Simulated scan of single mutants.
Amino acid sequence: MKHTIASPPQLAVAAIPVIAFLAMPFLPFVNTDALWFGVPSVLVWSFGAVLLTVASLNVVDYIGRRDRLSDAGTEGTEVTR
């Protein structure tokens, strides 16, 4: 079993919220004085990026667990940390 920190699919999924955070100051529809849902658009965008981060980390964890199970050859068993 080879030991890797992250596989390419995990890195791709984890990069999505990072790109959302980094793109925030450059997006003209986010970087305005407009209100979305009664709060500044930057705050809504940041909140969405945080939710996207949580979701993407769950996907990364799922991919990692699936890969560890398939490497161990023990489908259907729980992998402990």
Rank of each mutant, 00 (worst) to 15 (best):
L52V: 05
V44W: 01
L52G: 05
A23T: 10
F29E: 15
F21Q: 06
V44H: 01
E78A: 04
G64A: 08
R81N: 14
A34G: 07
M1Q: 15
R68C: 13
F29V: 13
P8Q: 10
M24C: 07
N58L: 11
D61T: 08
I63H: 04
W36S: 04
F47A: 15
A15K: 00
L27D: 12
Q10G: 05
L51Q: 09
I5R: 08
D67C: 01
E75D: 12
A20K: 03
G64M: 06
I5D: 15
N31D: 15
T53E: 13
K2F: 08
A14I: 06
G38D: 13
P40R: 06
T80W: 13
V54I: 15
P28H: 02
G38C: 03
V50A: 11
D33I: 00
L22I: 04
V13L: 11
F47W: 07
G73W: 09
I16H: 01
T80H: 14
P9W: 02
L27P: 02
G64L: 07
L27C: 05
V42P: 02
A14N: 03
R65A: 10
L51E: 13
W45A: 12
V54W: 09
L11D: 08
L52E: 13
L11T: 04
G76L: 14
A20T: 09
V60Q: 11
T32L: 10
V60H: 03
W45Y: 03
I16M: 13
P25F: 02
W45P: 04
W36P: 00
N31G: 05
K2Y: 01
T74D: 11
L43G: 01
T53I: 08
I63G: 06
G38S: 03
P8G: 09
T4D: 14
D61S: 10
V60D: 13
Y62P: 00
A12P: 02
A20R: 04
A14F: 00
V44D: 12
